[in-house]
Nucleic acid binder design. Structure first.
Lengths: 210, 210, 210, 210
DNA sequence: AATGAATGAGGATTCATTCAT
DNA sequence: AATGAATGAATCCTCATTCAT
């Protein structure tokens, strides 16, 4: 009576269960938002009873926050880090644009869910929203750095404006695609965006005729 | 003396009640989205019992759809129609930009609620979402017309791209402001956007070195 | 400016409205029973607002009771009274059987609704049930009389048993038809029933070898 | 000593809870029919909160269907199977009659509830009704078999007629008793019914003077 | 003779969560 | 590591009824 040889299946496996729950949750939360995501629905989709979800996560808030975190990490990986060395500023900007466009097409959960949460204004803010705002702030700083390194002449105000415009534009293009689908090619749009942001840098630069 | 005109309060007045319900609903739905909007909350805010809400609206779906419709109309009014005659194309674009910026700052319910609904993907789409998509489509056609009239040389593809970029940019700037507040002056951003869209028109125009 | 010539339509007409309400109510109550019959449903079916129903009837109980009364009268008319004079007792019994069979096929609302109400045991008995029990008692007395006149020799106990059996049989055949439809010809069954009741009379008669 | 077996009350026991819910439901549904049976009332009667009822049953429909099923089984048990061997056909028929009479007096929930459901015609038929019709069909087949074995000479049409008449008669007698109580002794009536059905068999038999 | 609007009570069902096992 | 059962609060919505007009 040795231990069963291949007890691989159905052997209590915390890590895998956790993943299954998170998988189910992204799907549902991405469809229905924070309030629309019920533990029962997640339970039905992942096959584990509701009480098991509470074994892995403190509460619904915690679950959603975890989902945001995980999907942010997944998104960050698909973006890839820009190679600092290569080419002219414009060329580097264009490569970033293409990267971001691709990442938003491939791993849209993070931003969709995040924007849904961010647009809400409920009195007691869910932790998921806070998490999203944090990682978003992080991304904004990262973009700011890139802007600064690409256009060293800009003053801080201009850097802020440009960063905001660059990120807001990406948000808008993403949102548009989520709503209307690929009626216009997203890569074209993101490249246009990169070009225009680049133009804006010169427009905002000191000594420009603005 | 005739009988007191406004009796002793609380006497049947359909039109006003309807408005009160809608007022309460925009406020709540704009804060918490579709699922977060409970009839009980609306009832509490407008003072009428839940059952009375159902006299005026078939169900929650119907209520939210009505809110979207009304807030769209309100928004359209605050935008104002562009004066066809005035100035150079660029000047006219700048005026539009300022108008839209102002309208989004003043009557943001329509777009906030609409975007929240639009980002959702629930299997049985709420009517409110459909309504939003319809009026949005309408707005897109309107912008398209303006683009065409400002830049008569553009081919249809370019018109589509430009329209999409213009609207998506506005969405993005709006979203950014909803999330981060006025860290960067919205009018500046919308004017920058107008400038860049204008530049893009020349970039996309036939004969440009694109 | 004389009175409009043919103000026949839409001139407030109490009698017709009352009928429309009753018509709608039989239909719904026959489908769904007492509790299942909502004023809103009746209102929807007859086209008059709920408040109008309350102008014609005191309350729901009153409405249902009125329906029972009216459908009983309709049923009584389709039964027709047996012609006292004609033929042998058996022949007269057979004619009655055919009459009753036909009436239950043609105007089944009364009995269906009545039985539904009668089978219920709610603590505060609805007036409709009382009305049904009353008219049913009336019918039972009528049948009793017929039994007595057909079989003058029977003692009162036997009359009671026979009457009960005759009526219960009719109820059962009716119920069976409501449930299973015309899988077996109802006239055949009612004739068989008449025959057997007739046989039973001889079986119960004094001096029979029972 | 081990830990106290029946803890401190109120500790999870699925099977027992399910029974308690069903017990409460038969009682209420038998009194008030489908629509008249509110989950709140069941909850009050069985002591479990409404939400617990939904742990055990998908919805009200499911609950009522389960009640029908269980009460049918209970009823089948009180009927008892006819002992194939004993006596003449008539004697055996009489014993069956007595058995059925007794069972309907003792466990009337099944038939009362079933008939109430069966008489309804709601557009979307409740599952409970379907279940009742199924078990009823089953019972009819059983009776048909008995008829065939008691009167092997009958052709199929006659078997159908006789079966229908036998069952419909039982329904009618049951209904009568539910409505009017024991004004006439039920056993007497069921025995009379058995006699008459027996007579009918000869009346329907080939070669009879029918 | 009729009705638009209102309303409190109650309908079924789902919610997030807990807890003993 | 997991789960069956339970639970109170909240969900949306319908109920029968009223009342001023």
């Amino acid at each position: 009576m040795t231990r069963p040889r291949a007890a691989l299946k159905k052997r209590a496996n915390g890590v895998e269960s956790r993943q299954r729950i998170l998988d189910a949750t992204v799907e549902i939360a991405g469809e229905r938002g924070y309030e629309g995501t019920s533990i029962a629905a997640v339970s039905a989709k992942c096959g584990l009873p509701a009480s098991s979800i509470y074994w892995h996560f403190k509460d619904k808030d915690d679950l959603i926050a975890a989902v945001i975190e995980r999907s942010f990490e997944a998104w960050v990986e698909t973006v890839g880090l820009p190679d600092d060395s290569a080419g002219t500023p414009l060329e580097r900007a264009m490569i970033m644009a293409a990267d971001v466009a691709k990442s938003l097409v491939e791993a849209p959960d993070f931003l969709r869910l995040g924007l849904m949460l961010a647009l809400e204004r409920r009195p007691t803010e869910p932790r998921g929203r806070t998490v999203f705002l944090q990682v978003r702030e992080l991304s904004l700083r990262r973009v700011e750095d890139v802007v600064r390194s690409l256009f060293p002449d800009l003053d801080e105000d201009a850097v802020g404006t440009l960063t905001t415009y660059a990120v807001a534009g990406a948000d808008g293009l993403f949102t548009h695609r989520e709503i209307h689908g690929d009626t216009v090619d997203p890569v074209t749009l993101f490249e246009l965006h990169a070009h225009l942001v680049y133009d804006a840098a010169t427009r905002l630069a000191p000594g420009s005729r603005r």
